[in-house]
Design a protein around this nucleic acid. Structure first.
Lengths: 126, 126
DNA sequence: CCGTATCCAATTCGATACTG
DNA sequence: CAGTATCGAATTGGATACGG
């Protein structure tokens, strides 16, 4: 009871926790490499090197880092085949697929407004 | 004809240009501050300071920088009222609104899978 | 082939100060 | 109030090397 007057009701505290968590997740996921990886995977199962060659310009380090993050978040599943040379495959999980749908929307948007944006940038720079 | 064997057909060249442009736009837009600003604006018209207080943790510099970029891309409109003290208002344009719809999807996704993700992270860290 | 670690250059970002 | 510029601190990210 004493603490309530300082921390607010439990409900409010829960909401604040959920909000800051949502914000944290949003911030991690809303970065170009993570989104491009999700998009590259699509509904396929790809090896590390295959993902890499699907995404122009991504470095080994960025790919590992983001794949690890996505695995940690449960958005991609990592399967290690105990062979030599190593074969490691990545697939989207169900949450990952759900995210992919929204990224598809973002990609569609990009292509749809390509012209608008290019023109606007040109105007702005004048 | 001579150049074709080095550059490919004009159609292919156009596609490559469009692709790299799409990628450039995607990379600029897919950053947390830009997306949070779009989301904060929604269908409202907000002053600089209002946007700032809607987005916890954004610095003056980041806000200006991203607002400028979004204006350049034609996603937000900037209205300057010639009064003192200055009053500058920002609104989403039609392309900005279209983008907002897809970001709404991303936000919904975040809240929907909050629990999954939190659990998965906890498991992973063990 | 895949993953981790290290080093270091480049960029990012916040804080601050100053202008209209 | 809104915007720009500047300056370090901190983070990022690429290159490289080595290990399983």
């Amino acid at each position: 009871m004493v603490t309530k007057q300082f921390t607010g009701s439990p409900d409010e505290a829960d909401l604040r926790r959920a909000d800051s968590l949502a914000r944290e997740i949003f911030s991690d996921v809303a970065n170009k490499w993570a989104l491009l990886i999700i998009e590259a995977l699509g509904d396929r199962t790809l090896r590390f090197g295959e993902v890499r060659s699907e995404i122009e310009g991504i470095s080994h380090k960025m790919l590992t880092q983001n794949l690890r993050m996505l695995e940690r978040y449960g958005l991609v599943e990592r399967m290690v085949h105990p062979v030599v040379p190593p074969r490691v495959e990545y697939t989207l999980t169900e949450p990952g697929q759900a995210l992919r749908v929204t990224i598809d929307g973002l990609c569609d948007w990009t292509h749809r407004y390509l012209g608008h944006i290019e023109a606007s940038r040109h105007r702005f720079d004048a």
